[in-house]
Amino acid sequence: MSEKKRHKVFVNGAILPNFIAESIAKHSSKKNIGAHDIFLGQIRNDIIDGKTVQAIEYSAYEEMAEEKFHEIREKAFASFNLSCMHIYHSLGRVKAGEISLFVFVSSQHRTDAFDACRFIVEEIKAKVPIFGKEIFEDETYSWKINTD
C-alpha cells in the first residue's frame, strides 16, 4: 500500500495554497487513509537590527539535498506506519507570508501521522543543505540560520 515513488522536492518560488488544496483532494480516492497531517512553513517578517525581512531567497546544494530528502523519506516509512508522504520545499525568492515548506503525511491513524510529520520537519531543518538569504525591505540581506 505504501507509495514510495520519488518526486522532485524543490519547487521554484512559493508553494501556492491551490497546490496544497489539490494535493489534499488527490487523496480522496485512497480510502484506507484515516488521518492526514500537514506542516506548512511560512516566511516570517522578522525584524533584525531594526530592518524587516520582506522575503527569503533559498538556495541549496541540490544533488545532496535530494539525497537527504530521500533518506528522510526512507527513514520515515521505516519508522512509522504511513500510507504516503509528500515533501515540497521552495527555492528562489519567497515573500513574507508565503509558504516555503509543505510536508504532507497520511496514515490509517492519527498518531503515526502526527509523529511522522514532526520527525520529517525536524530532519529537514537539521540535515538538508538548504541556505536562506533574509532580504530586507532595502534589498540588503543577512543569512538565516535555523534555531529552535
Binding site: G41, I56, Y58, A60, Y61, M64, H89, S100, L101, V121, I124, K125, A126, K127, V128, P129, I130, F131, G132, W143, K144, I145, N146
Partner: peptide, 10 residues
C-alpha cells in the same frame, strides 16, 4: 567537495 554553512531549510 563542498563547503556548507549552517542549514536554513523550512
Amino acid at each position: 567537495v563542498a563547503l556548507l554553512p549552517p542549514f536554513a531549510g523550512g
